[in-house]
Nucleic acid binder design. Structure first.
Length: 414
DNA sequence: TCTGGGGTCCTAGGACCC
DNA sequence: TCTGGGGTCCTAGGACCC
């Protein structure tokens, strides 16, 4: 007998757009897009016209002239997303949140209290609908991969339970792009050899699959196509990196542009690292040029960093080196900073003199202590009066294309 | 003409160590 | 002439996800 299907995947439908339609009833039933220059989310009515997230506002309006653009109520997205995930938590502590609007849950341990997994899924959908006013789709299956696919199939506003005895017949009819890990490139490669469904993919020989996609990806997809999903549900995953980026349009690759932008990005990242006592040892920058090609450059330090100006200086050195390697590139379109190799928990008060990696910049300097103290003071003022009350990089604020509140929605808990 | 932002994971090659 | 083998860490790039 097959194991029971106890994994739920719950996914709020067209989340940001649904919240806007909830807050403003006049928007219900109409094609709407959250955002302006870029579509951050589209309602189902807009999706019917081909409007998709990530699309430019202009392209979206071309597809759907009556499209309504709405400003985002970002605080409400956070509040309602948290509330929906909390409904899952009322049934089991085994909840793995994937993003603001999506989570896995394993209900194996609570069926004696709340009924079958299908019952629980139906209750969750009903509660999210009545208590929050939002549509949510749920997939129920034996594995994460199947549960995730089931919730996609269930959309919009549906429930799909995959019977453990009928998994392959469910899976093999579906298009390959529903598989976890099949993006545009893989899909195109499969399409080129006439493979459109997961069943067709499953029938490929291991050799032709690895020749097409490489050994690791080929093996992984073959396993998933035959329904072998080793991934366990992990309730408490810690972030492995934290970063920030800023699209610049087209700007000359000069220090007048680069320095304030990097300071602003470093400020965002380092503040988050300090708030969770998680400095990191590896600093990576990304520079995107006018042709949208980007280059990364990284350095790994002996001691972790979380001081704003030190992170900014390290990033500046990396960007300088990158530009030196590409002397013909005069225009940049994006800068990014990311910090990885994060410490689990760093006691700043105890490790201060070693923990600042200031040596990497100025051997023998004790200025790191003063900088750290300055950062702490800024953090405290912001806690009381808000982010904009004080800080670095105010020059760069003018070029931001996306509100900070939206950026925060995408940030992972460190 | 323009093309967002924050992440994860994987790979390949090289340095280095035992 | 040919020339270990395994492991770890690091960098750079790329595909993918939400």
């Amino acid at each position: 007998m097959a194991a029971a299907a106890t994994i739920l995947h719950a996914d709020l439908d067209a989340f940001y757009a649904s919240v806007e339609q909830l807050l403003d009833p006049s928007l219900r039933g109409r094609p709407i897009a959250v955002g302006g220059g870029v579509v951050l989310a589209a309602s189902y009515e807009a999706k019917a016209f081909g409007v998709r997230g990530g699309m430019s506002g202009r392209d979206a309006r071309e597809l759907c002239p009556q499209l309504v653009f709405v400003g985002g109520h970002f605080r409400d997205y956070q509040r309602l997303g948290d509330a929906a995930i909390k409904v899952l938590g009322d049934f089991t502590p085994l909840v793995e949140r994937i993003s603001i609007d999506e989570a896995f849950a394993d209900v194996a341990g609570c069926t004696h209290l709340f009924g079958t997994p299908a019952d629980i899924a139906a209750t969750i959908r009903r509660r999210v609908r009545t208590e929050l006013g939002l549509p949510i789709s749920v997939g129920v299956a034996r594995t994460k991969h199947l549960a995730k696919i089931a919730s996609q199939v269930a959309k919009p506003d549906g429930l799909v339970v995959v019977d453990p005895d009928a998994e392959l017949s469910f899976l093999h009819e579906l298009p390959v792009e529903l598989m976890w890990g099949v993006g545009p490139l893989t899909r195109a490669r499969l399409d080129a050899i006439g493979v459109a469904t997961i069943g067709q993919l499953a029938k490929l020989s291991e050799r032709s699959l690895t020749r097409l996609l490489g050994p690791a990806a080929g093996e992984k997809l073959a396993a998933l196509a035959w329904n072998h999903d080793p991934r366990q549900l992990k309730p408490h995953r810690r972030a492995r990196s934290a970063g920030a980026q800023s699209a610049l349009g087209r700007k000359p690759a000069t220090m007048q542009v680069i320095r304030p932008t990097l300071l602003h990005l470093a400020d965002r990242v380092a503040t988050r690292l300090r708030a969770k006592s998680r400095p990191g040892r590896t600093v990576t920058v990304r520079v995107r040029f006018a042709d949208m090609k980007s280059v990364t450059r990284a350095i790994t330090l002996d001691a972790p960093v979380c001081t704003t100006v030190i992170l900014a200086r390290l990033a500046e050195n990396l960007v300088r080196a990158t530009l030196a390697d590409h002397p013909r590139e005069r225009i940049i379109s994006l800068l990014a900073i990311s910090v990885s190799h994060l410490e689990e928990h760093w006691d700043l008060a105890l490790e201060l003199p070693l923990g600042l990696a200031d040596d990497a910049l100025r051997p023998g300097s004790t200025a790191g202590i003063a900088r750290w103290a300055a950062d702490c003071a800024i953090d405290k003022i912001r806690d009381r009066f808000g982010w904009e009350a004080i800080g670095y990089g105010s020059v760069a604020l003018a070029v931001r294309s996306v509100p900070d509140a939206f950026r925060e929605l995408a940030e992972k808990e460190l």
